[in-house]
Design a protein around this nucleic acid. Structure first.
Length: 488
RNA sequence: GGGAGUGUAGCUCAGUAGGUAGAGCAACGCACUUUUAAUGCGUAGGUCCUGGGUUCGAAUCCCAGCACUCUCACCA
């Protein structure tokens, strides 16, 4: 933990330099800086052995080598780094300012481009070519190891982002993935929509919601746990292809795969079914891999994941047999297996016990992308039962590296069955705060087109595609306990 | 909630059979006009997470607490 006395000592030193900068007539907090070119752009356009090339860049001083009458700076901007050379003989008037520069300061550099004798592309700052843009009053983290303290990295992500370039790269990849999803769906005629985050009934999933209150209406509201029921209302309304990329909120535990607020893309396509959604999912994920320039083989923790399709599609009951040895119809064997696995099955519904056994024995074995298809219908109140065998629902979950990445159904559009499913809450589950959404049943009574629906966890997708094994590495500001006064 | 681990300088980390601490980087000073984690010499910097206990003496051992990490449990 930081020592406030020493911190302020370093801060005072820098504050003193700030005063000296101001005394030179320079605003230590700069202002508009026009015609900035990115470091990568300068690198790309530089031509060897051609005189007279100039450049104008801005960024943060991440390395500084003071050789006396010559200073080399590594300047980092959003695209990368470029070396800036400051020479006393080239900028005698601004030299006092140059000597006041600290690691972490933000500057602009304008001058001739050239290469040093070691071959490093350098902006040789001309007189008046040094622009002070902002003072850094804190000491930056160690220049080679960066910021390593996990807690501090999340709490001060603004430092983490520039002290650890791989962090910046990961969030750039996240941005690219989100925009790829958006482009991919938009190109196929899907309409991007936004539905309520504050809902009077938290439906569309089974999870504990966050509760809030609207003063003017004196109304209890829930932060949504899923947008599903609203998006399907839009199918009723004639929006035949819709998607939403936005946050869901679930008031449950935090771990490597769960943050209380997380981002989902949900997609609904009228006249499709879950097979259509499987194809779409596979294409969409592969498009994202291509967009971030990744190989289809991705290192994830200790494992290698091969994303190259076609992905395995296996029935729930087949996988149950494969990994637990149990036949889905042999409930005695399943319950025996459950007890062997230390699952408390007493009073638990058969289907729930079966699913517990499935989760325990199967899921962690699904490393390469695997569609688990045809779930027991009783586990899927929003999915359409299979015509061929109504005991099963037309649903898939996509598992990668043992983690649920996507969930999809052929949507249930029969209001009578939907009503019954809502009514008969599954035994063996904890009581849920989900109330009956009668208006949703009414919407179905107007007629919802048969449709495929899909949800993909964006955070987990980014984790898998960037090799981040904890969700907090793909969320800029993950939820943390606030620091108490004494730990500040 | 259970178990395990971690907490030492601004940062990254060492360390001691119980005898109040060290390196590198950063900082400050000096030197240096082609460095690449610049280099060399010097200086300064610490409530060793917090509170108790044991002890002549605790950063080290014990207890409690706080924070973080891992793990198990919980979790459509």
């Amino acid at each position: 933990m930081s020592n406030p006395v020493d911190t302020s000592k370093f801060e005072q030193q820098r504050q003193e330099k700030l005063t000296q900068i101001a005394a030179l007539g320079t605003d230590p907090y700069g202002s508009r800086f026009e015609d900035v070119e990115s470091a990568s752009s300068v690198r790309a356009r530089y031509q060897e052995n051609t005189e007279g090339q100039r450049a104008r860049c801005a960024g943060r001083i991440v390395l500084l080598r003071d050789i006396g009458k010559l200073i080399f700076i590594t300047l980092r901007d959003r695209t990368g780094a470029i070396q800036v050379g400051l020479s006393k003989s080239m900028m005698p008037n601004q030299w006092p300012l140059a000597k006041l520069l600290d690691l972490g300061d933000l500057i602009g550099a304008t001058g001739q481009l050239g290469k040093t004798k070691t071959g490093e592309l350098t902006i040789w700052v001309e007189e008046s070519g040094l622009t002070f843009l902002s003072k850094c009053l804190f000491q930056p983290p160690e220049k080679f190891h960066g910021l390593a303290d996990v807690d501090q990295r999340y709490r001060q992500r603004y430092v983490d982002l520039w002290a650890n370039p791989e962090v910046m790269e990961r969030f750039k990849a996240r941005s690219e993935i989100v925009s790829t999803v958006r482009r991919f769906l938009t190109a196929r005629g899907f309409l991007e929509v936004e539905t309520p985050m504050m809902q009077t009934i938290a439906g569309g999933a089974a999870a504990r919601p966050f509760i809030t209150h609207h003063n003017a209406l004196d109304l209890e509201l829930y932060l949504r746990i899923a947008p599903e029921l609203f998006l399907k209302r839009l199918l009723v309304g004639g929006m035949e292809r819709v998607f939403e990329i936005n946050r869901n909120f679930r008031n449950e535990g935090l771990d490597r795969q769960h943050n209380p607020e997380f981002t989902m893309v949900e997609v609904y396509q009228a006249y499709g079914n879950y097979h259509v959604m499987m194809d779409l999912t596979e294409e969409l994920v592969c498009a994202c891999i291509e967009a971030i320039g990744s190989d289809t083989k991705i290192q994830f923790g200790e494992r290698q994941i091969e994303f190259k399709g076609p992905w395995r599609r296996a029935k729930y009951v087949e996988l149950l047999k494969e990994f637990s040895g149990c036949d889905v119809d042999d409930i005695q064997a399943i319950r025996a297996k459950a007890r062997e696995l230390n699952i408390q099955d007493a009073g638990m519904d058969d289907a729930v016990v079966t699913n517990e056994v499935f989760e325990t024995t199967v899921e962690h074995n699904l490393i390469d992308p695997t569609f688990v298809i045809d779930y027991p219908a009783i586990l899927c109140p929003l999915a359409r039962p299979s015509k061929a065998d109504p005991r099963y629902a037309e649903r898939f979950e996509l598992f990668v590296s043992g983690m649920e990445l996507a969930n999809a159904y052929t949507e249930l559009n029969d209001p009578a069955i939907q009503y019954e499913n809502f009514r008969h809450q599954l035994r063996g589950q904890d009581e849920s705060l989900t109330k009956m959404d009668i208006d949703y049943v009414d919407a179905l009574k107007y007629g919802m087109p048969p449709a495929g629906g899909l949800g993909i966890g964006i955070d987990r997708l980014v984790m898998l595609l960037t090799g981040a094994t904890t969700i907090r590495d793909v969320i800029l500001f993950p939820l943390l306990k606030p620091l108490s006064a004494e730990n500040k």
